[in-house]
Amino acid sequence: MSILVDNQTIAICQGFTGSQATLHCSQSIEYGTNIAAGVTPGKAGQIHLNLPVFENVSQAVKETGADTSLIFVPAPFCKNSINEALDSELKLIIVITEGIPTLDMLYLKAKADELGVRIIGPNCPGVITPGQAKLGIMPASIHSKGKVGIVSRSGTLTYEAVDQTSQIGLGQSSCVGIGGDPIPGSSFIDILEMFEQDPETEGIVMVGEIGGTAEEEAAEFIQEKISKPIVSYIAGVSAPPGKRMGHAGAIISGGKGTAEDKFNALEKAGVRIVKSPADIGKAIFEEINS
């Protein structure tokens, strides 16, 4: 077991022939992930990374039986690509692309909810289930198969948590980057619920950051629904209000979205909080083994 992706996953890649997609898909394939085909409009019929390239998603799905799409399409064209994926009876759409307009995501998120399709991202590193499938841009080498579920709004901070949980011998069940945008396809709550159901996940690391109230909402959910130990770090205690810290969603505005508020809400919900990103691995080790 695991969440979202495993060795049964059949994936296609949209924006397949671009340089980022080429780099990361070849690493995913090397990892053993079943990427069955690619989609790049205008390049149908070509063979890329030894795989067929299709004109559109529905053809690729029909030919391969894919259930998942990994999207690298540049932001200006990404609304159309996600839309196409939503219309093609896929179960999971993982969007790596950064810079998608917020109103596009409002529309796509509403449509995905209506169709019952899960979107992960955008502006995220993707999803990995160590030893089974890697659909994203995370470095494979730091991961190890194990028992910690990791969910995060940030890419490199996720790697930090992954590395620490590998070093301390716990390993990961699955790692999910939900992305740094204001309107993500999936929330902390969506992923926490899956980790709670997953028998291989014994503890959860949740990495949040300033901006919005997703962590506060997760805290309420955790109090009611999560029985597994959780460790949480929130980035940006030292961030000034009114300044966007890299991610489109990482901004304290109108006094809302501070790291203090999030830490407080999570602590009240019984979550073990750590104030330094260097302490994540040790803390989840203690929580699981206590």
Binding site: M245, A250, P277
Partner: peptide, 11 residues
Amino acid sequence: GAGLAMGTMDI
């Protein structure tokens, strides 16, 4: 990375 950059400031 933006998250790690904030994390570095925090630490």
